[in-house]
């Protein structure tokens, strides 16, 4: 399959209030093509809700449920629980819709983590998508648990001290039927993973890396380019796991096997204004050294996990 052969269904129709270059709308559009028309979406407070436009010009074409910030894990499973008997007792005809939550990193890594973890443990039947733009962009760029080290935001003005959490790995260790990471620069990989998730019953988690031109400070036309640099430098890893069995995908697999050398991380950093201070710092080499060590460590760790 190539990108021209993707289904014509459009989840994002004209009327979106999103920023130019918004990765969330690009991602949701691709996800929609894989999920098809029989789906119900849960939206937590986030850019994805704030940018959907004003009624009647909402830019989404799917049935949607707007939920509390902390509750994607709780509400997602409950929709499915309510639908199951209706379909099994034939009160509703046809195939049960795919239930999916479209949640930012704040709603996944921070305030929503308790509900997310519990939904995974119960194996609730829905797909949890985390669109990870590494900040609370909707409220004007505050740090989240997904914000990488050294990144300045309005609430980490000197650069964040801590490393980001590895939530996809934490979800993997809940041992749900399916967990995957994806990138907008590899749309067919994303499409395949969503299709795969759709074919599985139970709790499924897909996290998509979402370079946000507004918070990360790069030109709106470079969303995909920055996404690609994240993969090629090893800053974001592509992998999937079925029932706990992990495999690395695409460029990430090639990096892990040594078939391909990672691009210098500076290529990725200099594409983003949020790292400008670091690249100008007299301690630049120290910072870059730390970032590269961390990339190496994560890659080795995930490659090791793939051997289990």
């Amino acid at each position: 399959m190539n990108i021209k052969e993707l289904p014509e269904i459009e989840y994002i129709i004209p009327g979106t209030g999103a920023c130019a270059g918004c990765p969330s709308t690009i991602g949701l559009r691709l996800v929609g093509k894989a999920l098809g028309e029989n789906a119900i979406c849960l939206l937590t407070p986030s850019c994805a809700v704030a940018s959907m436009g004003m009624t009647p010009k909402t830019c989404y074409s799917f049935p949607a449920l707007n939920i509390c910030f902390a509750s994607a894990g709780a509400s997602g499973g409950a929709i499915s629980m309510a639908l199951d008997p209706l379909y099994s007792k034939k009160r509703l005809e046809g195939e049960k819709p795919v239930v999916f939550a479209w949640v930012g990193d704040g709603g996944t890594y921070d305030i929503g983590f308790q509900g997310l973890s519990a939904a995974a443990e119960r194996n609730d039947d829905f797909i949890f998508f985390c669109y990870n733009n590494e900040a609370y962009s909707n409220t004007g760029n505050q740090r989240s648990g997904a914000t990488p080290q050294y990144v300045p935001t309005t609430t980490s003005p000197l650069g964040k001290e801590m490393l980001q959490k590895n939530v996809p790995l934490l979800m993997l260790e809940h041992r749900p039927p399916y967990v995957a990471t994806a990138s907008l620069a590899y749309p067919l990989d994303l499409y395949r993973k969503v299709e795969k998730a759709k074919s599985i019953k139970g709790f499924r988690y897909i996290e998509i890396h979402m370079p946000c031109c507004t918070s990360w400070k790069f030109p709106a036309a470079e969303t995909i380019e920055v996404s690609r640099l994240a993969i090629r430098t090893g800053s974001w890893l592509l992998w999937e796991a079925e029932n706990g069995k992990l495999s690395l995908n695409g460029v990430t697999a090639a990096l892990a096997e040594g078939k391909r050398k990672p691009l210098p991380v500076e290529e990725y950093l200099k594409a983003q204004g949020r790292y400008a201070w670091l690249l100008k710092s007299p301690d630049k080499d120290y910072y870059i050294g730390n970032i590269e060590n961390n990339i190496r460590r994560e890659l080795e760790f995930m490659a090791g996990r793939a051997k289990l």
């Binding site: 983590f113 004007g140 609430t155 980490s156």
Partner: peptide, 26 residues
């Protein structure tokens, strides 16, 4: 929104005066 400026202001000021600014997880 519309109170995030309080956090942003505290994030800038608190470290300079030895105070604690902390953005919680919820």
């Amino acid at each position: 929104t519309p109170q995030t400026e309080i956090s942003a202001y505290m994030a800038k000021r608190m470290p300079k005066i030895g105070g604690t600014f902390l953005q919680a997880e919820s």
